[in-house]
Simulated scan of single mutants.
Amino acid sequence: MKKWFIILGSLLLGWSAYFIYLNLPYEFKYEEGELREEVTSPSGRYTAQYYDQTYGGAAGGVHLFVNVVSHSEDEAVRTVYFSDANAYFHIKWLNDEQLAIRHLGGGDQSIVLTVGQEIYDGTGKACRRYAITKQYTCYSKKYSKEEP
């Protein structure tokens, strides 16, 4: 009987460690790709950078992501948008805090994000992570945001 408690306790401990590993240390950050466009916010406080990232070789595809560089926070870089590449993509600042992302083709994934408060992950993985949802409001194809 004691042997079963040890086995059951070990399985429970292993499952708990696996759950923590999958959910807590997740980081929504992309850095490797080809820079396609840079747009500076009206006051110069932020710069939005749009990147392409190829994957999978000849049968693969292209991811795209947008990083925002904060010039007032020692050039801190944060990823705010991630998705598969489609037909049309364009970024522009509406004001110092809001970044408009226009992404068409294969469904409209356009969104206006408030820098430092909101992110968009087309795969939805970031929106299922506790560490991300505690810090940001997360949107994806499944969890959408109404356009203002």
Rank of each mutant, 00 (worst) to 15 (best):
E38H: 02
S144W: 14
L22R: 15
K92P: 08
T54G: 14
V112N: 13
G105R: 04
Y51H: 13
S70P: 00
Y26E: 06
Q109A: 08
Y81C: 03
Q98Y: 08
G9K: 06
Q117Y: 03
V39Y: 04
A48P: 06
Y50S: 12
N86E: 10
H90A: 10
A131G: 11
R128F: 08
A131M: 08
S41P: 00
Y30G: 10
L35N: 12
K145Q: 14
H63M: 14
E37R: 09
S41D: 00
V69N: 01
W93V: 00
I119D: 02
A59N: 15
V62S: 06
D84K: 12
C127G: 09
D108T: 12
P25R: 08
W4N: 10
L113R: 03
D84E: 13
R128N: 15
S70L: 00
H63V: 08
D52G: 09
P148L: 14
F28P: 07
F89P: 02
S140K: 07
T40P: 00
G14T: 14
R128I: 05
L24I: 15
I20K: 11
V68S: 02
R129V: 02
V68Q: 03
P148Q: 15
T47W: 00
S16M: 12
G105P: 01
L64D: 12
F19Q: 12
Y18S: 10
K145S: 05
L113E: 03
F5G: 12
Y55R: 13
S72R: 05
V115M: 01
S144K: 14
S72F: 00
V77I: 09
V68M: 03
A59R: 13
Q109D: 08
Y18I: 03
N23G: 15
V112G: 14
A17G: 11
I7C: 11
N86G: 03
A126W: 03
A126C: 11
I101E: 07
L22K: 15
Y26W: 11
V66L: 05
L8W: 06
N86Y: 10
Y46P: 01
R78A: 01
E32T: 15
T47M: 00
Q109C: 01
K134H: 10
V80H: 04
Y26V: 07
K141Y: 11
E31I: 11
H63P: 13
Q109Y: 04
I6A: 09
K3Y: 11
S83W: 09
L94D: 09
V115P: 01
A48V: 03
C138D: 05
T137E: 06
L35K: 10
Q49S: 14
K134F: 05
H90V: 04
T133Y: 02
Y136G: 02
C127L: 04
E146N: 15
W4R: 13
A126F: 04
G44W: 00
E118K: 02
S83M: 09
D121W: 06
A85Y: 11
M1P: 10
T123I: 13
Y120L: 03
Y130S: 15
D52P: 15
G122K: 05
L104S: 04
L8Y: 10
V39C: 05
F89A: 11
K145C: 07
E75M: 00
F89Q: 10
M1N: 14
T114A: 04
F65Q: 02
I7K: 08
A17L: 15
